[in-house]
């Protein structure tokens, strides 16, 4: 056998062995399922390249009315662990687990387990309803990141230190991001800021800034107001004298336009953070856009009150 043939065979053998080793290495990695977009970002930043993060369902769904699809069942069967919000928005995850007969077979991490929940402020019926949007905030997201990291550290003890270190680094990054927007409004004189939101999902975000929602327009989670409710809402908004109304991407413009036309109040957009693609920095981008919209509204409201 010529030297070239021997060399070629040896090279092929090395490649085969390396590929097998790599495949085995990848085989050892945990496959972690996530439901909503922020949880994909949280988990990816915690595990980096030491686990595989797998969104449970495809992009572009509306979590308020998602129904499980057959392909979701296939996906869940490959998971080692699932991370859920657990208090709203991702009930479909349990349905998928049930349909795939996976309930109780893989650990489920409830990210909100240790989050201190707050009520939906400005509820038209003045009821104290739990707000499940803990993922639209820096502070409550940090609590969830710690919970997820601690749970993953127990499931995958070999990487426990790595996960905790990454979680700590990630939460510092998020706090710095928030500080940037806090700085924007640091010199504003203390004033009352009154705002209405179309969707009752932004109490945690506003709490991060020491603010509170004055009124929520949609009558219930994910429901559109009837003509009668809209008329009642317009009347209430006029009486409440709000500075701005925060709407969001999926809310039909006709309602917002009607409210704007009837009240003359400025409209700004906030994101529910549950759309678009699944990326590691999706949460940072989304929450930053929300913090920008909020601080823009504060600066603007202050300028108007100062008569500038």
């Amino acid at each position: 056998m010529s030297r070239i043939k021997i060399f070629t065979l040896a090279a092929l053998l090395v490649i085969c062995v390396s590929s097998q080793a790599l495949a085995q290495e990848q085989g050892k990695k945990l496959v972690i399922g996530t439901t909503l977009h922020p949880y994909y970002s949280f988990v990816t930043n915690i595990v980096q390249d030491r686990a595989i993060v797998q969104p449970l369902i495809g992009e572009g769904f509306n979590p308020h009315n998602y129904r499980p699809q057959p392909e979701d069942i296939k996906r869940v069967m490959n998971l080692d662990v699932l991370v859920v919000n657990g208090i709203g928005h991702d009930e479909f995850a349990m349905e998928i687990l049930g349909a795939a007969q996976m309930k109780g077979k893989i650990p489920v991490i409830f990210a909100n387990k240790d989050v201190s929940l707050i009520p939906v402020a400005g509820n038209m019926d003045d009821l104290k309803i739990v707000n499940p949007h803990t993922f639209i905030s820096v502070t409550t997201s940090i609590q969830q990141i710690h919970t997820i990291a601690a749970a993953l550290a127990e499931i995958d003890p070999d990487n426990a230190k790595y996960y905790k270190k990454n979680a700590r680094k990630y939460v510092r990054k998020l706090r710095k991001l928030k500080a940037k927007y806090m700085q924007r409004i640091a010199d504003l004189p203390d004033m009352e800021f009154r705002c209405a939101t179309i969707h009752g999902g932004y109490d945690y975000l506003l709490q991060d800034f020491g603010l509170q929602v004055t009124a929520v327009i949609e009558p219930n989670h994910g429901l559109k107001p009837t003509a009668n409710q809209l008329a009642k809402t317009i009347k209430k908004i006029k009486a409440l004298d709000v500075d701005v109304i925060f709407t969001e991407m999926h809310f039909p413009d006709k309602y917002v336009d009607t409210i704007h036309e009837e009240t003359g109040i400025r409209i700004r957009h906030l994101s529910h953070l549950t759309g678009g693609s699944y990326t590691a920095d999706d949460f940072e981008k989304g929450i930053e856009a929300n913090m920008k919209a909020l601080t823009d509204a504060l600066v603007e409201a202050h300028a108007i009150k100062e008569g500038k």
């Binding site: 409830f110 990210a111 909100n112 387990k113 240790d114 989050v115 201190s116 929940l117 499940p132």
Partner: peptide
């Protein structure tokens, strides 16, 4: 005492 996500899951 916080009203936690765990409490909410148990309630529901």
């Amino acid at each position: 005492i916080a009203y936690s996500g765990e409490d909410e899951v148990k309630r529901v």
